[in-house]
Amino acid sequence: MLNSLLKKYSFKFFVKVEQFSIQHDHIHLLIRGGKRSNLQSFFKVLAGQFVQRLTDTFDKRHEGQKIWKYRPFTRVIKGYRPYLTVRNYIQLNECEMLGRPYSKTRLRGLSKEQLRELWE
Rank of each mutant, 00 (worst) to 15 (best):
Gln114Lys: 07
Lys7Tyr: 09
Gly79Pro: 04
Tyr70Val: 09
Val51Asn: 00
Ser4Ala: 12
Arg53Ser: 03
Arg87Phe: 12
Ser41Met: 01
Gly99Pro: 04
Phe73Asp: 01
Phe43Met: 11
Ala47His: 03
Thr74Leu: 06
Val51Thr: 00
Thr105Gln: 15
Tyr102Lys: 12
Val15Glu: 04
Arg32His: 14
Glu96Leu: 08
Leu46Asn: 03
Gly34Ile: 01
Lys7Asn: 11
Met97Lys: 15
Leu110Phe: 03
Ala47Thr: 02
Pro82Tyr: 07
Ile77Ala: 06
Phe14Asn: 15
Tyr80Thr: 13
His24Glu: 15
Lys16Asn: 13
Ser4Ile: 10
Gln19Tyr: 09
Thr74Gln: 06
Lys35Trp: 04
Arg81Gln: 14
Val76Pro: 01
Thr85Glu: 15
Ser103Arg: 14
Pro82Cys: 09
Ser103Gln: 15
Gln40Ile: 12
Gly48Lys: 02
Gln40Met: 12
Lys16Gly: 08
Asn88Gln: 12
Thr74Tyr: 00
Asn3Cys: 13
Ile31Gly: 05
Asn88Leu: 09
Lys8Asp: 10
Ser111Met: 11
Phe58Leu: 05
Leu115Arg: 08
Ser103Met: 14
Leu6Pro: 01
Gln49Cys: 02
Lys112Phe: 11
Met97Trp: 14
Gln52Gly: 00
Gln49Pro: 04
Val15Cys: 08
Lys44Leu: 09
Lys12Ile: 08
Leu92Val: 05
Gly64Met: 05
Ile67Lys: 00
Gln49Thr: 01
